[in-house]
């Protein structure tokens, strides 16, 4: 649920990277930290254990100003993927305005992907969000590895769902921006309906995406 602070003329949105353990959620966030050149970019906060497993969450704050002068602040979070950390996932997921589901493309991880996606659907409802209408992009990561599910196979399976699928190699920074772009498009239309971004704040979807991604998106402009 976006928070609008009238006093400070600020809209805060929360975007969450969800998915099974070790699927590359934190890598996605780090890639975005490197690639994005928004008007405002904060320090990335990483809370990890010794062996690089996310402990509670990672946080990357981004921001931009609308022509009307309103500040839009995006807080990008990751969740810990291990099954045991379900309460942490619920806490991070609560009041989310959009989700990237980072799946692991390796065949051996197919069951983990399914379980994690079910867990996402369940937790979304448990924290009081409408899963059917929540902005969501599915990313199949680690496309560089052998023994992965073929693109056709993945697309055939996800074809019947309303969610776009993006293939990525987050370590090489491939597909990360496209994923984020897809999510921002969906988030914009929801926020526009709720806060009249276009009419009241003079902010078009393209401007919104440019404001958040900056030059990073220009490098991938053929995908826009």
């Amino acid at each position: 649920m976006a928070e609008f602070d009238e006093k400070r003329n600020k809209l805060t949105l929360k975007l969450v990277f969800y998915g099974p353990a070790l699927s590359g959620k934190t890598t996605n966030l780090m890639a975005l930290h490197d690639l994005l050149q928004p008007e405002m970019k904060g320090e990335m906060m990483v809370l990890e254990t010794e062996n690089d497993r996310t402990l509670f969450f990672d946080l990357l704050p981004l921001g931009m100003k609308t022509p009307s002068g309103m500040m839009i602040k995006l807080k990008l979070f990751t969740v810990p993927g291990q099954v045991a950390h379900d309460s942490t996932r619920k806490a991070v997921l609560s009041r989310a305005d959009g989700v990237v589901f980072v799946a692991d493309s390796q065949r051996t991880q197919a069951i983990n992907n399914t379980e994690s996606f079910d867990n996402l659907a369940g937790n979304t409802m448990r924290v009081g969000l409408d899963f059917e209408h929540m902005p969501l992009v599915v990313q199949f990561n680690k496309r560089d590895l052998p023994e992965i599910q073929a693109e056709d196979e993945v697309l055939a399976r996800w074809d019947k769902t309303p969610w776009p699928v993006v293939f990525s190699n987050a370590l090489k920074r491939e597909g990360v921006m496209e994923t984020f772009h897809e999510l921002l498009c969906q988030v914009y239309s929801g926020m526009d309906r709720q806060y009249d971004l276009k009419e009241k704040h003079g902010l078009e979807c393209d401007e919104f995406i440019y404001g958040i991604t900056g030059k990073g998106m220009q490098q991938n402009s053929e995908l826009g």
């Binding site: 906060m45 809370l47 402990l55 509670f56 969450f57 946080l59 309460s87 942490t88 806490a91 991070v92």
Partner: peptide, 9 residues
């Protein structure tokens, strides 16, 4: 943030 989320969990 870590301590608050810990309490929530």
């Amino acid at each position: 943030m870590a301590s608050d989320i810990h309490l929530q969990i």
